[in-house]
Structures are given as C-alpha cells and as structure tokens.
Amino acid sequence: MWDYTEKVKEHFLHPKNVGEIPNPDLDATVGNITCGDALRLMAKLDKTGRIAEAKFQTFGCASAIASSDALIDLIKGKTLDEAAKITNDDIARFLGGLPEAKMHCSVMGMEALQKAIATYRKTPFTLEDEGKIVCRCFGVTDKLIEKVVREHNLRTIEEVTHYTKAGGGCGGCHREIEAILARAHGRAPAQAAPAERAPRAMTNLQRINRIQEVIASEIRPLLQADGGDIELVDVDSTRVQVAFRGHCAYCRVSDVTLKGSVEAKLRELVDPEIVVEDVGDKPSKR
C-alpha cells in the first residue's frame, strides 16, 4: 500500500474540480489509457486573462487524481504567465508530498498545464514538440527528462523513472537516460554510448504506441472518409486485434480492408511480421 498523505487522500476521495467545460479556452490531454494514466485539463479565462474556471478529467491511480485536483486549485485565478511557472514540485508540495515512485503523477499535471498554455498561445509545446522520444514505452521525450533531472537534481535512472515513467518499461532507453543524466550534471557519460547500437526488438508497449500512431494518422482518416472507423483492441507480439466501427462493422468487404489496407499499412510502417485480426464481432469483447 502506498503511503499517501491525508491531503492526497482528501483530494482523491473528494476532488472538487472534476468535470468538463463547454468551449474551453485551454484544453489539453496528456498520457493515454494504454500507459495507465491520462489527464485532460480544461480552463476558461476571464476578460483580464486570468483563469476563471478550470476542470479536469483523469484516468489513473489515487495520486494521479489527487495531483490533477491540486493542479486546478493551484491555477485558479492566475494569469497564464503566473500559471506557467507552476512546477510539479508545487503540486507535490500542495499535497504534502507524494511517494517517490508516484512523482510522475505530479509531472503529468505540470505537462498538461504547459501543453494547454502552449496550445492556447499557439507556441510549440517544447516538452513534446521539440523533444526526441527517448522512452518509447511511455512516450517520454529527452526535453522532459532533462527538465526534471535539472529541477530535481536527479542522479539515477530509477529516480528518472519515478518522476517521468521513462525507463520503466523495456529498459531499452537506459543508456540514453544515463547520457542525459551525465550531460545535466556536466560529466562525461560513464561509457560513451556507441552511436550505432543494434536496435532492440520492440516491446509490446512500444509496438502499441507505434500502432496507435499509425492507426490514428494513416488508417482512421481513410476509413472515416467512408463513414467507418477502427479501434485497436489489443496487441500480442505481432498479432494485432482490431474492431471495425460504423459502416466498416457491417461492410462485407471489411475483410478486404483489413488485409489490404490495415495490415499492409502496419506491416509497412511498424513491423513486416504483423498479422491483423478483426475481433469486433466477438461477444466476449462486446
């Protein structure tokens, strides 16, 4: 059992800022259901540019929900310039501290806020847009890792994982994290990472993220043009299970669509070994 403070429990059990805001000025989502936590932040500004109203929706554990609620309390009434200065530490401090392994929940709050502000201002969201993905399992960029390493003077990969989740999946990015740690602390990397390392086999989570990207950017638009849709059900190694929605669900040529375009695209862009199955009509999956 995690050792949560009373404040965390209070904000988890009785969050006051849950909800949706119609036509929000600020609206950003970070994380996703695959990774185990996601936060959607919405806010409206008043005429003076202060945050008049803010709400959140969160999928995640107790500390993710508490961190989201705390974030909203912290940003209310602030100008965007003031809000932009809020760090994950402010969130953790507000809650009377978070267990070390749960610090990433407060970082998720900070990320959502920065993303919402950047999107509103139409400026690049540095942590995502200008960064290079280091941890493919959880989609964490070098920019984010560097930021938390500097802000919290992190020294080990384990600490980086606690704060960002990076490195907590397959472990394939540990050397890159090591290099970021070395750079941040102004020392040479323990062992200069060889430039050309044999690419590791993708883990399931990496694969899922890649497949989701390809479905969202390449496949779904095609199907939606015909009034259909597709949903990723599961990935087991190279076996990809999808369900067709909308018109595609009843379409008699969906088998052709499945093999001809979905599988072909995934084989081309993710892994040549991929086999796609339609599990949409299986009652067990509902």
């Binding site: 995690w2 259901i33 936590d37 554990c61 107790a62």
Partner: peptide
C-alpha cells in the same frame, strides 16, 4: 473498463 485498479482498491 475505463477506471484504474488502484483507485478502486483505495476507495
């Protein structure tokens, strides 16, 4: 579906 286990357990 759509909710996280730890949150359920703590509630």
């Amino acid at each position: 579906e759509f909710v996280e286990g730890e949150a359920i357990l703590l509630m």
